[in-house]
């Protein structure tokens, strides 16, 4: 079984449209959407949800005022400025925890001399195991302004592997999040290959370099697809040069194409409505991606 993660660093390069098209081409694949705080793949693939699980990712804490001696130790030890002091009349003041600033480290909870801080475990997201027209799909929804997206990503990948084992699937194809931070790291660590979808803009190139450095850091075999490749031929060439210097294979080049946006606006998979030429390019991307072998 081969686990392929598609990322882009920069948003809006066409990553999700390409993932949906690859899902249509791959037989025996499990699809996973690891962009858990802005998941979009389900809009194209309209999966039928078969199982929903609650995700308890975050811990929050609150101060029980009747037990609190107002010593202020929690405020002193909190490094995230999440303990707020409320001044009342005279010496009468109280403390509360700002759930948005809180990073759930639990230091206040563990060290409160009066055990006045209570831990609440709350449901911060949902995990879905579904079926769409090309096979099984695992996706999730992180609650609004909730943290721990990296943990939810890890859970999506774990569930996708279980489904793949159960079905003897050949591939797991993962739609990854933007950036280079914790949800991306959680999406790619231990994966077989990474496909970076980039675009020939100076931002695209800059973001490609950083995300390729990240896959290099974790020693993951990486290939690149240049989408909108004729938008700027100079930058397109700079991407090719960078990739050859960095020993990264270019697996596909797809021209600037309004078919991508058109399909998106209608909620269609670009491969399903693509011209012969565009379909051939996506096909060859998939073929080349298959040739990419993981680092042992």
């Amino acid at each position: 079984m081969k686990e392929i993660v598609v990322i882009s660093g920069k948003g809006g390069t066409g990553k999700t449209s390409i993932v949906a098209s690859l899902a249509a081409l791959a037989e025996h694949a499990v699809l996973a959407d690891c962009d858990v705080d802005a998941a979009d793949l389900h809009l194209l693939l309209t999966p039928k949800i078969e199982q929903t699980e609650d995700f308890y990712g975050g811990r929050c804490y609150h101060i029980e005022n009747e037990n609190c001696a107002q010593c202020g130790f929690c405020e002193e030890v909190c490094r995230f400025d999440a303990v707020i002091e409320h001044n009342g009349y005279g010496d009468n003041h109280s403390f509360s925890i700002d759930p948005i600033a809180c990073e759930s480290c639990g230091v206040c909870y563990y060290f409160c001399p009066d055990s006045a801080i209570v831990m609440d475990k709350s449901r911060t997201g949902e995990l879905f195991t579904s079926r769409m027209r090309y096979g099984p799909m695992v996706h999730a929804r992180l609650g609004i302004a909730e943290e721990n997206s990296g943990k939810l990503v890890a859970l999506v990948r774990k569930r996708a592997r279980e489904v793949a084992d159960r079905d003897n699937a050949e591939y797991i194809i993962i739609d990854g999040p933007p950036g280079v931070g914790c949800p991306v790291i959680s999406s790619i660590t231990g994966a077989d290959v990474v496909l970076i979808v980039t675009e020939p803009t100076i931002s695209g190139l800059s973001d490609l370099k950083r995300v390729a450095e990240l896959t290099g850091h974790f020693g993951i075999k990486t290939g690149v697809c240049i989408n909108k490749s004729d938008l700027n031929l100079d930058v397109s060439q700079q991407i090719s040069d960078y990739c050859s210097e960095s020993d990264i294979a270019i697996l596909g080049r797809i021209g600037y194409n309004e078919e991508f946006t058109g399909a998106l606006v209608r909620g269609e998979i670009v491969l399903e409505i693509a011209s012969e030429d565009l379909a051939a390019k996506i096909n060859s991307l998939w073929e080349n991606l298959n040739q990419l072998t993981p680092v042992n």
């Binding site: 948003g11 705080d37 992180l142 909730e146 943290e147 997206s149 933007p178 950036g179 931070g181 949800p183």
Partner: peptide
């Protein structure tokens, strides 16, 4: 801001 709605955006 960065993309998304999680901690760095908040």
């Amino acid at each position: 801001a960065p993309a998304g709605t999680s901690c760095p955006v908040i």
